[in-house]
């Protein structure tokens, strides 16, 4: 029983960081209709920026974090301007392939610059473990969960109460009407990409500072696909709930079936959901008309 509780807690807590990655993904899908296959790579690149800033240039962790965020934001703007805007109006599949191309470029670039070794960047957060009688929770996992929760709560507030957030939501739900009402669509799309990249970077740095940094980090985003599909691609709340759920299932599977099952369980979940409940738990069913 203690074992079960420990696995469950660890799983749900690691689901928090997964929720950040899912958020990065859902923001783009909801805001621009693009499925971004480069989320994992953007996350990895941000973590490498952070690593370079702290270790190579010896900056304080907070300054390095800011530098990494700025670097990623600049790249997101370039990508939006140079690749996605010329492709706007093309079929979804074309844009999706462009993001796959982007992922390939980033992955190759990162391996060319930093190689395939595992680095351990300095932690952002304190690492005191939490101990309840005989359950031990590593401090990094707890800290990551806390940062993820605060960030996600911040995003909810941003979309609900600020005028910029409302403008983004308006653009997402109906770009033409939003443009008529004076919202700058291009700026809104650009901001969506920036926000998503920033969230991804934070997630990447959190994972990298607790589990080490290598090009394999990008694969972490792959299991997030299970979460967003379960949550229903276009629902932020769904993505978060599903992330926690998938994190829990993954941890249980890894605990009871062995670590290898972690590589495959999320994808089995994806296939099963897509066959039986393709729009997930919270997703909107779309009705297509001619």
């Amino acid at each position: 029983m203690t074992e079960f509780i420990e696995y469950s807690l660890l799983g749900i807590l690691s689901g928090g960081v997964m929720a950040l990655i899912a958020l990065s993904f859902v923001l783009i899908y909801k805001g621009t209709g693009v499925v971004n296959f480069a989320v994992g790579e953007v996350m990895m690149l941000g973590a490498y920026f952070y690593y370079a800033a702290t270790v190579t240039f010896e900056l304080a962790p907070i300054a390095a974090l800011l530098l990494a965020l700025v670097g990623i934001a600049v790249l997101a703007v370039f990508f939006e301007r140079l690749v996605l805007r010329p492709l706007s109006g093309q079929p979804a599949v074309a844009v999706l392939m462009a993001t796959i191309g982007m992922a390939s470029i980033i992955h190759g670039g990162v391996e060319a610059v930093w190689g395939g070794d595992t680095y351990s960047p300095p932690p952002l957060l304190p690492r005191t473990p939490l101990i309840f009688s005989d359950i031990l929770i590593p401090g990094a996992v707890l800290g990551n969960f806390a940062v993820a929760s605060i960030l996600i709560a911040g995003f909810f507030a941003f979309f609900r109460y600020t005028s910029v957030g409302i403008a983004l939501r308006a653009t997402a739900s109906d770009p033409v009407t939003a443009a008529t009402l004076g919202i700058d669509i291009n700026a809104a799309l650009r901001l969506t990409w920036i926000l998503s990249a920033l969230v991804g970077t934070v997630a990447g740095i959190l994972i990298a500072s607790s589990a080490g940094l290598s090009p394999l980090l990008a694969a972490a985003a792959m299991s997030v696909f299970a979460a967003i599909i379960l949550g229903g691609l276009d629902s932020i709340a769904g993505a978060i709930v599903a992330s926690l759920l998938i994190g829990w299932v993954e941890a249980l599977a890894a605990g009871y079936l062995g670590g290898k099952s972690r590589d495959v369980i999320p994808f089995v979940v994806v296939l099963v959901i897509l066959v039986f409940k393709p729009y997930g738990i919270f997703g909107t069913r779309t009705i297509e008309r001619l």
Binding site: M97, A98, I100, G101, M102, A103, S104, I105, I106, H107, G108, G109, V110, E111, A112
Partner: peptide
């Protein structure tokens, strides 16, 4: 890695 990046760029 360079090959991978070039594939992406070509796409």
């Amino acid at each position: 890695p360079m090959g991978q990046a070039v594939f992406g760029l070509l796409i």
